[in-house]
Design a protein around this nucleic acid. Structure first.
Lengths: 195, 195
DNA sequence: TTCATCATTTGACTTTTGTCAAGAATAACA
DNA sequence: TGTTATTCTTGACAAAAGTCAAATGATGAA
């Protein structure tokens, strides 16, 4: 079950046997049903996880509304960046979009592996760099002024998520409201605005 | 001149003498006059730098307009994340907002230090993690729907930048146009909307 | 100083997006 | 199967933000 994770790590930096053993021993497999919380606001995020199967959504509450900040699917790392790194309770919620299976690694065990294995620091650094690049693109897209452009980018790059997530969450993720998103989608198929 | 950088790195992870020597030897001090380019779009970013003095602005061109994506000041690392990590030309420009002095580290020498010193991987990982957190906050703020809220956050957290950067750049950074920003600023001092 | 340039503000108007309310469509379930 | 939620769509209108044009202010060079 963890083979894809091992392959991924090894592709970044060949891991010594001992590190692979630690990784396998430390990994705690958890399953969540659709709509179960993986992390609730007000709690410290003690795990960095890896999505084996399924998709999750991360959001915070603003003025009684859920603002979705991330959708993550198979093969992605998940954690609350603020809470995990600062070791404090945050305002982020992570919830299963559908039934999910994840492999969790506890903060202390992650630190231990960083301490014990130079290779793991390289992997940690590079995974973090990739995530950084991902966030840069997100920022780039959010600064696009037109709601329609943001939606088109989403359709092009995350078509699977259109099936996996309800529109109301996609809307707040894209920084618009549900009705606006619905109208943009209606517009899309009109012969005059197609492109 | 590099003492603050050394102090900062050491505060993350005590560096061995040899690493400190390498850092000092590899550092190339460069100075740029206001409005000089530190990185131009279409080129590969070969350096990760550290701002010793001054402030810089990073932007890309969209529909003939400069969209500012970042302001960075003394003590910040700078590079084009996409270009530096992918080793490809990107569309990011980095330009001096005022006269700046930076310490540059070449990609190859960075890799060499990562290879030679476990401590440097830890530092690299943690600096990257901090940056990650910084981008998360940026994302959080850009998703705030109201232009005025975004401006208020900016005023509160980066008051110095109001002095250092012209409003037209702050406007695109905040995802609004210049006139809107100007009106928000006018609004601010009216007794009815103050808070 | 004076001129030229750039930065900022303001006005009039348009477009985009949000809000509220009501229906239609779809999925979930007893 | 019908019933109930939930999700999605649509309409009418309001608010926010963008556009274009012009005026004012500030700055810097000759």
């Amino acid at each position: 079950m963890l083979q894809p994770l091992l392959d991924y790590c090894n592709s970044i930096c060949k891991m010594p046997e001992q590190l692979i053993n630690d990784l396998l021993n430390y990994a705690k497999i958890k399953e969540y049903k659709k709509d179960e919380f993986i992390l609730k606001q007000g709690f410290v995020s003690n795990y960095t996880s890896w999505i084996i199967k399924g998709a999750v959504r991360s959001y915070y509450i603003k003025d009684d509304e859920e603002i979705t900040t991330k959708f993550l699917q198979e093969g992605s790392p998940i954690t609350s960046i603020y809470s995990y790194y600062s070791r404090r309770p945050g305002n982020e919620n992570i919830i299963a979009l559908e039934d999910v299976t994840i492999a969790c690694f506890h903060y202390d065990q992650m630190q231990k592996m960083y301490k014990d294995y130079p290779a793991f620091n390289i992997i940690g650094r590079i995974v973090t760099e990739k995530y950084l690049y991902f966030l840069e693109i997100e920022l780039y897209n959010l600064r696009k002024t037109k709601a329609e452009e943001r939606y088109r980018y989403f359709v092009k790059h995350y078509p699977q998520l259109l099936q996996r997530a309800p529109l109301k969450h996609i809307a707040t993720y894209l920084g618009m409201n549900l009705e606006t998103l619905s109208r943009i989608r209606a517009r899309r198929y009109s012969p005059l605005t197609q492109n």
